[in-house]
């Protein structure tokens, strides 16, 4: 019998599973759900796991400012990071800049941040975007903030490993340059995901369901994880964990 949990809690549990085996996870700004997942992965890890929350004053160990994140990534000291995108396409290219013709884009988003660099250097990049629609998941992005794959001569030790949305979890196959649907979140079906995804992807005829948190994990999320993430994201915590 599946536990009654919020959609955010399902995402946190699912992302935390993708982080298993990591030793160092960094979480960028405006990322409360990935941040919570990283804290959950740390709480459940049997080996030491370090989490650097960029948004939080005392949640990271950088003593030279955020420049240190990029240096650590280049040295192989960061195992996992999260990126999003206003648009994401089937080759895992991401667009954080805008839609339409650059530079006078019809819609302008903030900008590429560290994506054009971290996507190449962090082994396990998880793409996270709650909105699952043809507006976001497009056949081809209008602007490549960071490419999903590179030519063989380009130095690249990292890249996309998964895409998780409000409806489904995909794995990215770097050799085939395609996403494969791994599981559907409870309450969503394949027909709907096919209808709302703008790019082609591989899938089973009857995809698995994304597993929710078990009772112990849910208790962990609503307890220590909720209290810790509230320091960096008080508004998020108040909304999602009202009783924490």
């Amino acid at each position: 019998m599946p536990l009654d949990c919020r959609p955010e809690e399902l995402l946190i549990a699912a992302i935390a599973r993708l982080l298993r085996g990591c030793r160092n996870i960094a979480v960028g700004v405006s990322s409360p759900i990935p941040g919570s997942a990283a804290l959950l992965a740390r709480a459940e890890s049997e080996t030491p796991l370090r989490v650097e929350l960029l948004e939080s004053l005392d949640g990271n160990s950088f003593t030279r400012g955020s420049v240190e994140l990029f240096d650590r990534a280049a040295q192989g000291r960061i195992d996992a990071f999260f990126l999003g995108g206003g648009q994401i396409d089937g080759q895992a290219n991401i667009n954080l800049v805008g839609t339409g013709d650059y530079p006078r884009t019809a819609v302008r988003w903030p900008g590429s941040f560290g994506s054009a660099y971290l996507y190449f250097l962090v082994p396990r990049v998880i793409l996270f975007r709650e909105e699952h629609s043809r507006r976001v998941l497009v056949p081809k992005v209008d602007f490549v903030s960071a490419p999903g794959v590179s030519a063989p001569e380009v130095y690249r030790r990292g890249g996309p490993c998964a895409l998780i949305t409000g409806k489904a979890l995909f794995r990215f196959d770097r050799d085939r340059r395609r996403f494969r649907l791994e599981s559907l979140h409870p309450g969503h079906d394949l027909a709907d995901v096919l209808e709302t995804t703008g790019f082609d992807f591989d899938h089973d005829a009857a995809p698995a369901a994304t597993a929710g948190p078990d009772a112990a994990t849910l208790e962990m999320i609503r307890g220590p994880v909720a209290r810790e993430i509230a320091k960096a994201y008080p508004k998020f915590a108040a909304r999602v964990f009202p009783r924490a």
Binding site: A116, F143, V144, S150
Partner: peptide, 13 residues
């Protein structure tokens, strides 16, 4: 010098 960025439209522009 800097790693990464090659193949992006950030560099193209």
């Amino acid at each position: 010098p800097l790693r990464g960025v090659i193949g992006s439209d950030v560099l193209a522009f």
